[in-house]
Amino acid sequence: MRAIAEGLFTDETPPRLLGGRERTTGRVVFPCPAGDACDPVPLAREGRLWSYTVQRYRPKTPPYAGPEAFAPWIVAYVELPGEVIVEARLVDVAFDAVEIGMPLRLVQVPLDPDAAEPLAIPAFAPIKGAGA
């Protein structure tokens, strides 16, 4: 599955997210901004849920490029320890089972699973068997 944009993920299997480390401050941001202010830095695959919400209605198109038929999804902020908190989807968990602090691992999910050539976006899923 092709990524929704260049430079979001590393090329390894499984991939990691690519952040940017600001050269002057060491601050880590995501995604890695264009230009030479930041060096690309692979981010940790695992972290914990920092906060979240459920997107209950279809965002407007443009810019949203997801499927016409809408089913709500979770927007998560995931803390990658010592690095940065990143925004991504949260999958493989019921809405009422989501808990701030739960351990998560990076996965890729298709923005539109029914597309001829689905595009991968960053997501996190609960680490099975891990206690919160």
């Binding site: 997107q55 965002p59 949203y64 927007v75």
Partner: peptide
């Protein structure tokens, strides 16, 4: 642009 395409704007 991908940030908007993914539904975060």
């Amino acid at each position: 642009d991908w940030y908007g395409e993914a539904g975060y704007m």
